[in-house]
Design a protein around this nucleic acid. Structure first.
Lengths: 207, 207
DNA sequence: AACGATAACCGAACAAAAACCGAACGTCAA
DNA sequence: TTGACGTTCGGTTTTTGTTCGGTTATCGTT
């Protein structure tokens, strides 16, 4: 990634800032005003160099007007994802807990590939510490019928007992491997795969 | 996800707002009135664009009476936080790694109390698995000179060697307790507290 | 100090997208 | 049948990014 000059960096920060904070991309005039420039051409030049260096994606279309700028980096917004329930290893998933208080969690958009099919489970208990998942963690789960090898999945053993494991398809069985390599894997013929884990968020209370 | 123009963003915000506040979706005329538009056609145009960009789901094409608009996605506040460097337990924090590529991470706003004094460190190595922190995790850190007891802090032992531990002030020393209660605490007289950990984000690659 | 290269800047003219309008139309529920 | 509502159609106005031909700073090198 090529390095930027001071001015370029400032403009990039401003663009990404409004894109993120306000929710829309600034117009050239707004940028110009913000930096006390009197010509939009100058702004265009800066943005062109930023694009050339790979920091921004200007809308491809020719000609034009008012075309929102897409950030190249993962600068998209956060998505509100419903909190679907509590997951405790070895127990059924408790969907009732969050049913009434249909809470929604803000999740960075780059953790969410398919917003319509994504939900959040809150982890209860210490039983997954060996997978690096602690009590109170939020796991972002995407409903997905066909996980790839190596994906972390929410699996229901015997159709009820929840567990978070790495998924591997073998000859005629499925291996569920704990993230901690020292632990023994579980083998199952036909576990019910609830979804694929895309990310984890841990919040510490603000004292 | 395509980004929006100023007007589009404003209208989206309004629609989602009344949806959440009032419980039903506003009529086209209400929207028009709110934005001082004299034609419903303009509103229809805007909503069509919003739908095309994937921010709204308009009621199924059939003719029409006032049916609620379903928000497919919600914009919500996330904050752009700079990626300040790499943290490897037992080693100095590597700030150079991210110095030039001033990358920024979208973090849910509720993990960030003070945006100006918050930054992100990327964890390197397996040495903190016992604290439930894996290689590649992102820790959200708030600069804070005075951590409270029980806060997870980024501490620099001997002014250089980084570690993530729970912070407890005792009589005439400071106890740094691993998150895993089974492990032995570290005692130090005057560790340099780099900041307080507010949250952790773990991303799994989308295969 | 002189040179060249690159970054930063300017203003005007232009075309196309975005934003807007009014009126007529169809549909549904009360 | 009567509204209230969303939809469609034809425009017009406004906003905005692009382009072009330049001028000034800035910086490293000779």
């Amino acid at each position: 990634m090529k390095s930027l000059t001071k001015k370029q960096s400032a403009i990039l920060k401003y663009v990404l800032g409004t894109l993120q904070g306000e929710g829309y991309s600034p117009t050239y005039e707004e940028i110009a005003k913000n930096f006390k420039l009197r010509s939009k051409a100058t702004v265009a030049e800066h943005l062109a160099t930023l694009e050339a260096k790979g920091y921004l994606k200007l809308p491809g279309g020719r000609g034009g007007a008012l075309q929102p700028i897409n950030a190249a980096l993962n600068i998209s917004r956060a998505v509100l994802v419903p909190l679907a329930g509590l997951i405790t290893a070895g127990k059924p998933i408790d969907t009732d807990a969050a049913a009434d208080s249909n809470e929604a969690i803000a999740v960075p958009a780059d953790l969410v590939a398919d917003p319509a099919n994504t939900y959040v489970l809150k982890v209860r208990g210490q039983s997954m510490v060996n997978e690096g998942i602690l009590d109170g963690d939020l796991v972002i789960v995407q409903r997905n019928p066909s996980p790839k090898n190596g994906d972390v999945v929410v699996a229901l053993l015997d159709n009820a007992y929840a567990t978070l494991k790495k998924f591997y398809r073998e000859q005629n069985r499925i291996r569920l491997q704990p993230a901690n390599a020292a632990m023994q894997p579980i083998y199952a013929k036909d576990p019910l795969i609830q979804g694929v884990v895309r990310g984890i968020i841990r919040k510490f209370q603000t004292t």
